[in-house]
Amino acid sequence: MPSPNQTPKAVPIPPAGSALILLKINGVDRSLSIDPRTSLLDVLREHLSLTGPKKGCNQGACGACTVLMDGQRVLSCLSLAVQLEGREITTIEGIANGELHPLQAAFIEHDGFQCGYCTPGQICSAIGMFQEFQNGLPSAVTGDMAAATIEFSDTEIKERMSGNLCRCGAYVGICEAIHSAFDREVAK
């Protein structure tokens, strides 16, 4: 048992083993020396002050940490940063240049959030989801897996977004926001 008068150690012990990685985050090359145990999420939040991606469960069950990796939505909590050399990461902070992304604006308009904690993950996820939809990826509610076209319906959106939990229950607003931001592109 530690002694009652234990004093803190003055000099920090460096992490056991560290790795150098180069990541491209929101268009900027970042060279980092990290403990290989560090997740992409913790690299972003604790090392790069990019706190937009959120830690909701750290176990791949809530989607709050969703970022885009080479354009695809992934969970940054389950990604070991050491594995991501050379990958392009886009976080909520990088999805728009100055102005709001149309989906961000739609989230405000349709009140697609309350506390705002799951919001960055919802938005990044929806952007990735829409890309998947356009690639022709079917979902669990797409009846015919071989269908040439899939309707961009409420049910499709909700199924594809189900990996992003919102405990405030803003799902109705989120779904409306996604429709309003992407419907026009679907029609093209």
Binding site: T66, R73, V74, G128, S139, G163, N164
Partner: peptide, 10 residues
């Protein structure tokens, strides 16, 4: 597509 979530499947 019945498994996990879109992010995990990616």
């Amino acid at each position: 597509v019945f498994g996990a979530s879109g992010q995990i499947r990616n």
